[in-house]
Computed example of a mutant assay.
Amino acid sequence: MNSTKTLNLITNQYTIPWSMSRAEQATLIRVLQTIKPKVAIEIGTYNGGSLQVISAFSDKVYAIDLTPTYRDKQCDALTNVEYLIGDSKIVVPELINQINSNNEVVEFILIDGDHSTKGVLEDITNVLKLLPKQAVTIILHDSFNPACRKGMKAYDYNSNKFIENVELDYVTGAFNHDGLYREMWGGFACIRMQPEKQIRPLEVTSYQDKLYRTTYLRSIHFYKNLFWFLKPIYKIFKK
């Protein structure tokens, strides 16, 4: 059997292209197959690649994005999806308040919207105001990207007693991702919440932290951060 066909066996039934590695696609499919969420939330829909999978295994999905411009027309057939258009920093708090009030059972969340450190932290902070009715699995895409990872590490997870565990390298990311020169992207972090409050101190784990740190020192991100003080000068000359 052709090796490419073998690798794509688990993902090739989904026809909307999606910007995740084969490992990420296979993991997302398997996680959703296992959970079969009553309600799921996706922050960052873009063209709908991951949404098609979330929709296939969920009873209901809230899909949040800044604009519907890039959404694939095939998304029109996803009848269990409610699209919420706007900035996640505004939309998510309103949605979480609504869910907490009407007792909807959220069991899966994908965070893949704003990729800045501040944006990632705000999305996490807002999502974790959810009062879980059942176990909740939260997948955060691009945990291998330094800016995103910094935002993921910035939240005080011990302040939320519903959080059971946090793993930054649930799926490892990639170097030179999609041909982007010496850039680090991809990877899944995973947060698990339980309806029962946890009584033990929580340790954020990062299974591949040594790989992350070694890669970071060879990445373009390292040099950009090293010479951050030159950015104002660069902007002047760019004009």
Rank of each mutant, 00 (worst) to 15 (best):
I220C: 06
L211H: 01
S159C: 11
S55C: 08
C190Q: 15
G113D: 11
H141C: 12
L131P: 02
D76L: 11
G186E: 04
L140F: 07
T11Q: 08
Q198W: 02
F227G: 01
G86R: 11
F237M: 07
R218L: 13
G151Y: 06
A147S: 12
P232W: 07
E94D: 15
I199H: 13
D142G: 01
A23L: 07
Y212N: 08
L66G: 15
K38E: 04
V92I: 15
Y216V: 00
T4I: 14
L9F: 12
Y155H: 05
I124S: 00
Y234K: 12
D156A: 13
F237R: 07
K38N: 02
Y223K: 09
S159A: 15
N100T: 15
S116F: 09
V171Q: 09
H141V: 03
F144R: 01
K150I: 01
L130P: 11
G119H: 12
Y181D: 06
L121C: 05
I191H: 05
L128V: 11
L121A: 08
S159N: 12
K129S: 14
I16H: 06
N80M: 11
T79P: 07
M152R: 01
T15F: 08
S206I: 01
P37V: 01
T27P: 08
P232K: 02
N158Y: 02
